[in-house]
């Protein structure tokens, strides 16, 4: 299992050389800390998925002594490990650059990252290779562009709920958000496992 997680780093060791310049670029662009934490978290797992999509890697992995459950578990656990490590590097970089950030920023990015991963990972196991990247891009734009519009549309009916949420203290709000993200991430894991278990290679 550990070997499967390590695989993500081996396949993209050249890309990893760009990891720190990538962070520095965002810091120089004066990006919001939440955005920085979010994009650095996306870097390793989504790069790995892009690599996997290009080759017939599922045939390779499934001929090695791993179970399908382990292959999926390594994706979901590895993502958490790399997210933590990436955020760690980002924190060090921000500190060195004397940029301010808060724990709230970190928590918010972790929640957003888990939500995005939870929604996109199963697509990599459901869809045929080649279709995935455009669809992930499209859903990202729909998510970013359509989400607020949808909220405005439902403004009236949601008024009471929004008011209730807004009145909650920040820590409760964040904890709730993180809890929802973790639950959705776990559901996503279960869904991917079931899909992958039935897949034909």
């Amino acid at each position: 299992m550990f070997n499967l997680i390590k695989r993500d780093v081996i396949i993209q060791k050249k890309q990893l050389l760009l990891f720190v310049p990538f962070i520095v670029f965002f810091i120089l662009m004066d990006a919001h800390p939440v955005l920085i934490f979010l994009v650095v978290s996306l870097y390793v797992p989504f790069n790995a998925l892009a690599f996997d999509e290009k080759t017939n890697v599922n045939v390779l992995l499934n001929s090695l002594p791993y179970t399908r459950k382990q292959i999926i578990a390594s994706r979901y656990l590895g993502t958490i490990v790399y997210m933590a490590a990436s955020i760690g590097v980002a924190i060090i970089s921000l500190t060195l650059a004397h940029q301010s950030f808060t724990v709230t920023h970190v928590a918010l990015s972790v929640g957003l990252f888990l939500l995005f991963s939870a929604m996109t990972f199963p697509l990599f196991y459901v869809l045929k290779p080649g279709y995935i990247f455009p669809i992930v891009m499209l859903s990202f734009f729909l998510f970013v562009g359509g989400g607020p519009a949808l909220l405005r549309l439902m403004d009236d009916s949601l008024q009471g709920l929004i008011q209730f949420v807004m009145d909650l203290p920040m820590t409760t709000l964040l904890t709730g958000f993180l809890a929802v993200a973790i639950i959705l991430y776990s559901i996503s894991w279960a869904v991917s496992s079931v899909v992958y278990e039935r897949k034909a290679f």
Binding site: F51, K54, T55
Partner: peptide, 11 residues
């Protein structure tokens, strides 16, 4: 032994 390449090409 696979029919076709299943390895990461650039590696």
């Amino acid at each position: 032994v696979y029919d076709g390449n299943v390895f990461y090409e650039g590696m």
